[in-house]
């Protein structure tokens, strides 16, 4: 059967779900904190400032430092994990309940899996769109600049002076606030979906969390998660993670998940077990 029909079906059934309403409150938490920081410093954040704050992350935690407690990037983790959580169960529907009717009608296992991959990418896109809209709402309500311009003062306040007073070009701001986080989250979400073919979904979700926590500790570009932390980018700090390789790595993982997942799904038994 036509792949586009399957994709259309998945987008129709699995994209706009009630639980999407959870996204604005999730995104509002870092936006509120960003607002508080910029307000107390007497400057205003633009849309790009809010978005970059949402996906700022933290500097790597050093285990060598035995004296201080680690500052945990809880809001960053919530934003990323929120996306993984919201997209965890939809593919399972097809593997268990209603889905056998759909899989059989698809006529082609590879197409079915690829449609799920496209759905996953679109659902992550929708998630980021909703985060962006929440940031836009904050920008408008606080009288900020609804643009990709990020002035040096706000940047210095938000990034605790890490940027050395740089002003970011709009394209860089877009890359750090939207494109790289989107690619990173999509890669982890697809990885989670692929792993669901071989293990229980709860453990796939745990693996996603472990990956994210590894990236909190180590800023190696090889660990997924670093791409979604603006503060570690070489565009902001010297010796940081280069955006090119980080994006390439995410794309590679997305492609590998699509290829390996469809190969595995072609060979797997659909027994109708619930989870």
């Amino acid at each position: 059967m036509n792949l586009t029909k399957l994709i259309r079906h998945d987008l129709q059934c699995g994209l706009f779900r009630l639980r999407c309403l959870l996204v604005p409150p999730l995104a509002a938490l870092p936006c509120l904190l960003c607002l508080r920081i910029t307000d107390s410093a007497g400057c205003k954040s633009s849309w790009a400032g809010y978005m970059m704050y949402c996906f700022m992350g933290i500097e790597p935690i050093s285990v060598q430092d035995t004296m201080e407690k680690a500052q945990f990037p809880i809001l960053w983790l919530i934003l990323i994990i929120g996306c993984l959580y919201l997209h965890l169960d939809y593919p399972l529907n097809d593997l268990s309940l209603t889905g056998q009717q759909i899989i059989v009608r698809s006529g082609n296992r590879r197409n079915w899996y690829l449609a799920k991959c496209v759905w996953n990418l679109c659902a992550c896109g929708l998630y980021f769109l909703m985060v962006s809209l929440t940031a836009s709402l904050f920008t408008v309500l606080t009288g900020g600049d609804l643009s990709l311009n990020c002035d040096a003062a706000a940047l210095k306040v938000l990034y605790l002076g890490e940027t050395g007073g740089k002003t970011l070009p709009p394209l860089t701001a877009l890359l750090l606030s939207l494109i790289l986080p989107y690619l990173t989250v999509s890669a982890i979400s697809l990885l989670q979906m692929t792993l669901c073919l071989i293990m229980k979904p709860i453990f796939c979700f745990l693996i996603g969390i472990i990956l994210l926590l590894l990236s909190v500790y180590w800023d190696s570009p090889l660990i997924l998660g670093n791409g979604a932390m603006g503060i570690r980018s070489s565009l902001l700090i010297s010796g940081g993670v280069a955006p090119g390789p980080a994006a390439e790595e995410c794309c590679l993982i997305i492609i590998l998940c699509m290829a390996i997942g469809s190969w595995m799904f072609k060979r797997s038994d659909i027994l109708g077990a619930r989870d």
Binding site: L29, L32, L33, R36, I74, L75, L77, I78, I81, Y85, L88, D89, L92, N93, S96, L97, K200, P201, I202, F205, R274, D275
Partner: peptide
């Protein structure tokens, strides 16, 4: 919830959201 995994994640999701709200409350 229809799926077991979503039931199992209820404590985690609730506590992590509470954590975020508490962090905000503690900082503000």
């Amino acid at each position: 919830f229809r799926h077991q995994v979503m039931v199992l994640l209820v404590p985690f999701v609730s506590l992590i959201l509470l954590d975020a709200v508490c962090s905000m409350a503690m900082s503000i």
